[in-house]
Amino acid sequence: MSSEESRKNILVDDSVAENITRVEELAYELKIREVMERNVRTLDSELKMQSAADLFRQQRISGAPVTKNGELIGILSIEDVIRCLVANDMDAPVTRYMTSKVRTIMATDPVVEALKFFVNTGVGRLPVLDEKGNMEGIITKGDLTSGLLFALQRSIQEEELKTYRASHLFEDITSNRTSLILRYVIQPRDFTHGGTASSNIKRALLRMGASPQIARRCGIAAYEAEMNLIIHTTNGGNMRVEIEPHKIALDVFDYGPGIPDIESAMKPGYSTATDSIRELGFGAGMGLVNIARCVDSMKLESVVGKGTRLKMTILLESETVGEGYAGKKEVS
């Protein structure tokens, strides 16, 4: 994708709103040091107003910090130069017209602090101090805007790159059969973290270029199976997801207590869950029924006292993951 196209994307894409939120986030994440101007043109306290005015014109700048022996003592803006011109006092030293009560900002502050300051005061620039109180740079509204835009562009490109890489994962690998295996260990009764594995599975599939429908079906099946491990097993269990270009296989197994009556377990509404589990919103007896709806084939085996194994397969007949399908689809 050329830079021209990617810029167009940012302007017209549905994700515009998302990007605005991202800008807000970035304003908190980015530090002043990352967007400030380091190459600061300073004015010596001995300098005459005329020289300062010439410098502003030549360098096309609208203000600069004033220093004495390297120490920040004030700031001179174009408005100060105009005041001086009106007073016809261009031979005066800059110290006479500068603002001496200078507001500064720390290089380690988040960008949002400078944004707030500019909005609230109408002031156009802020000298930036390092941890020791020495001037390290200067920041203007323009620096903020270009810094944020640059960071936004970079973060979008990073996500695009990650998705691109994941969706082309299998493309350049030659083998008789290539697959990616994700493994998760599920703890019993962990209702707080329950669903984390399934959430990661769904995200991985989306990144690898699976359609939202496939990711949803796979996510729901995995989630129900994961919650079954949390609710029913003695010691938790394991989830193993094998992703191939045309097929996703989920294998969920545990070591007890086992299901005494598989036929009943498959019936809608049948549940052995306790009332307290029901009050948590589970145990409606729909889990296995739900899984059956989401997958293309399933196999449930259980031995009481030994454990349970649920194998599920989702076929990707008309699409693939990891072979650049998502990328191709977007282009066409």
């Binding site: 669903g195 989630y223 919103g281």
Partner: peptide
């Protein structure tokens, strides 16, 4: 939540009296 997973269509608003994190997981799925 199993009922939600079983029957809800994408892009719905979910009204619920449950407050545990599973509500978010279910919504995400």
């Amino acid at each position: 939540m199993s009922d939600v997973l079983a029957s809800i269509q994408p892009e719905a608003v979910l009204l619920t009296g449950l407050c545990n994190p599973q509500v978010i997981r279910t919504a995400q799925m």
